[in-house]
Design a protein around this nucleic acid. Sequence first.
DNA 1: CTGGTGACCATTA
DNA 2: TTAATGGCCACCA
Length: 112
Amino acid sequence: MNTDRKIPDVYGRIWATVEKIPRGRVSTYGTIARLSGLPGRARLVGYAMFNLPEGAGVPWHRVVNAAGKISLPHGRESRRRQRLLLEREGIAFDGDKLDLKTVGWPPASFRG
DNA sequence: CTGGTGACCATTA
DNA sequence: TTAATGGCCACCA
């Protein structure tokens, strides 16, 4: 394969995990990191999202922080777009945050 | 090499 | 509840 790739394949692994988030659900940076085999590297997931090319087909909007809030800074266009895309999928917001217990993925009942 | 930054998170107080 | 702290690691000047 490609032994002299410039982009770390962890990016591709992270993006592949994000693609698994079903419509109407959200996951967190830490969870994506863990499911990608990169426990404790939540910041790397944020970095991978930041460097995500547009039109890649990755549902980046379904990734929020552990507090259940959109992590993009205020005033940024993509922040408003993320909220819009989530509400479009039927996700309800209470102020700035959503309920991870309800719309979080994987669901809490995953275990067992 | 060093130091700063960031779409993070768990712990502690 | 908020705030501070340490850990994490790719990238850049």
